[in-house]
Amino acid sequence: MTTTAPADTLRYLEHGATIGEALAFFDGLPAVTVEELLGRWTGGEIPTGNPMDGLLGRFGWHGKRFDSPEDVHPLVMDRAGGGTFSLNPGLLPLPALLRYPAALRNPALARAARVLGPALGTRAPKARLRLTRYRDVDSATMCYDDLPILDAFRRVDGDTLLGAMDMRGLEQPFMFFLRRE
Results as ranks from 00 to 15, higher is better:
2 T>M: 01
2 T>H: 08
6 P>L: 03
8 D>R: 12
8 D>M: 02
11 R>P: 00
13 L>T: 08
15 H>L: 09
15 H>W: 10
16 G>E: 05
20 G>L: 06
23 L>H: 11
25 F>I: 01
26 F>C: 05
27 D>V: 05
28 G>M: 00
31 A>K: 08
32 V>N: 02
32 V>E: 00
33 T>F: 00
36 E>P: 01
36 E>K: 04
37 L>Q: 01
38 L>P: 02
41 W>L: 13
41 W>Q: 13
42 T>L: 08
44 G>A: 09
46 I>L: 13
46 I>V: 15
47 P>W: 14
50 N>T: 12
51 P>C: 00
51 P>D: 03
53 D>V: 06
53 D>C: 07
54 G>F: 03
55 L>Q: 10
57 G>H: 15
57 G>E: 15
57 G>D: 15
60 G>I: 12
60 G>S: 13
60 G>T: 13
63 G>I: 11
65 R>S: 14
66 F>G: 06
67 D>W: 04
70 E>L: 14
71 D>W: 12
74 P>S: 15
78 D>E: 12
78 D>C: 03
79 R>K: 11
83 G>F: 06
84 T>I: 06
84 T>R: 15
88 N>D: 15
89 P>Y: 07
90 G>T: 04
91 L>G: 10
91 L>S: 10
91 L>F: 09
92 L>K: 12
92 L>P: 05
93 P>D: 09
93 P>Y: 10
95 P>L: 12
95 P>I: 11
95 P>C: 13
96 A>T: 15
97 L>C: 03
99 R>D: 11
99 R>L: 12
99 R>W: 11
100 Y>T: 14
101 P>M: 10
102 A>T: 11
104 L>K: 09
105 R>A: 05
106 N>G: 04
107 P>V: 09
109 L>G: 02
111 R>C: 00
113 A>M: 11
115 V>R: 15
117 G>C: 07
120 L>Y: 15
121 G>C: 09
122 T>E: 06
122 T>R: 10
123 R>K: 11
124 A>K: 13
126 K>I: 03
126 K>W: 04
126 K>Q: 14
127 A>F: 09
128 R>M: 00
131 L>K: 02
132 T>V: 07
135 R>D: 02
138 D>C: 05
140 A>L: 12
141 T>S: 10
141 T>L: 02
142 M>D: 02
142 M>W: 03
144 Y>F: 15
146 D>I: 00
146 D>P: 03
147 L>T: 02
147 L>Q: 10
149 I>V: 08
150 L>A: 03
150 L>E: 08
151 D>Y: 10
152 A>T: 07
153 F>K: 02
154 R>F: 01
156 V>E: 00
159 D>A: 13
162 L>P: 03
163 G>T: 02
165 M>D: 04
165 M>W: 07
166 D>N: 13
167 M>S: 08
172 Q>M: 11
175 M>D: 05
175 M>Q: 07
176 F>V: 03
176 F>N: 07
177 F>S: 08
